[in-house]
Design a protein around this nucleic acid. Sequence first.
DNA 1: CGAGATGTTGACCAGACTCAACCCTAGTGG
DNA 2: CCACTAGGGTTGAGTCTGGTCAACATCTCG
Lengths: 253, 253
Amino acid sequence: MAQHRNSRSGHKHVAPSPGGPLLIAPGLWQTAAKPGQLLTAGERARLAVISSVVRLRKGERLYTQGQPATAVFNILTGVAKTYTPSSNGMQHIVAFLFSGDLVGLAQNGVYVDSAEAVTALTGYRIPTSALEALLRRDADLEFEVVCKLSHDLREMQRHAFFLGKRHATAKIALFLQMLESYQEARNGSVAELYLPMSRSDIGAYAGISLEAVVRAFRELTSRRVIAFRDRRHVRIVDRTALDDAVAERTRSV
Amino acid sequence: MAQHRNSRSGHKHVAPSPGGPLLIAPGLWQTAAKPGQLLTAGERARLAVISSVVRLRKGERLYTQGQPATAVFNILTGVAKTYTPSSNGMQHIVAFLFSGDLVGLAQNGVYVDSAEAVTALTGYRIPTSALEALLRRDADLEFEVVCKLSHDLREMQRHAFFLGKRHATAKIALFLQMLESYQEARNGSVAELYLPMSRSDIGAYAGISLEAVVRAFRELTSRRVIAFRDRRHVRIVDRTALDDAVAERTRSV
DNA sequence: CGAGATGTTGACCAGACTCAACCCTAGTGG
DNA sequence: CCACTAGGGTTGAGTCTGGTCAACATCTCG
């Protein structure tokens, strides 16, 4: 792998080798300073040794539900989704995955869902056998994995909470808040949200039809809570009103 | 390390010693023989050293959302629920916890939800500081925790899937299947399901009103899919029809 | 420039929520 | 042993959201 590194000017070149896997999550029991990258340089290097880089185009599969789970994936850039088939041929989206996330949950050696790229994607492919061996040797690294899994668990709980909302508008409002916190954790503050996924993906994630997604967006737009620049870029205009929408009460102007 | 300290007077001591904490989950990457207890006797003993036994009556709190997360709980007997406040003073139930489960998820040192006993409860209270120290020393034990967290993550995904269902009957059918798999993993095969929680708890878990819960139960009963012995005991009569109900199509017979 | 995919809008209708009444059942005290 | 009570549980009537279907608009890419 790429060995020669420039001197300690503090700058790493990104193009060929991004410096190893990335795990992003807030602290668990420590009141961590800032939610950020969990791994030390050494840990990233050790993980990099056992992993390979993957690149996928939009729409390509990472893995398929029911197949033998030979690897876990760590996303570097781009967005992925995991999904399971639902009732009428539709798919239920389990999660959207961003940089610093781990994908590839297994049970009894088999993937429990399918994953595909929502945008162009780069990431690491980490074989499970090497990963397990490494984890059993390196308790500190493994502890970071525990933190990350705990974080993912909380995120799933938020998703569940969100699916429990009755009104489509509340779901969409919560979805926007979720996206915002994701993008803020990665890119710092954002003036404008980017929606990489299609309307039907949002619907499949929120548990509503894509028409309901559109209606909810229209509702929030007409109430001057959000404003679209184009179909993929929104700005949150009135944060208080967005909170009200999440709480499922109509804003009393 | 201290070996035997359980003869301390004044401290709660379990008469029929349960042998230490219990972690129940299926395998992750290995095609494990049987989904069962993950910990070795040694691991259980090491955990027991740092934990204390707790006993709660029905309705008592384990911990409260927002308070400093000083401990994790491991359930031995009984049922607990975790919940967060929802819109209109209602509560959204995040999960029901059974024996072999871990409760007490934290973020930045603070509990992310509240937990209380649904039935009389016994369990272990494991202080986070001692737990973290132990995990960082014992990678194999920690790996079991990784497996358990992965399992919980899958369970949350099932819950989310379940909340995405449109029809109340489908949700209730899925809820029954979930309860069954829980009880089978613990007690072996069960001829009859026990519902320890109230109808409103089921509604708060399923994201529907308690009236809808009742109506769904009535619907399934009148279709001869299930049969109630009393309000807390159900028997699954027609498994195929139950699957059909989960898939949100009416049975064509 | 055209064709297929994606996004938007409207009309209609089924199903779940709300509200309000009533029915059990377990637990209490006479 | 029984009457009483409080809390959950059950049922019904009316309202309203969101699903479905169908038409149309817009975008993307060859």
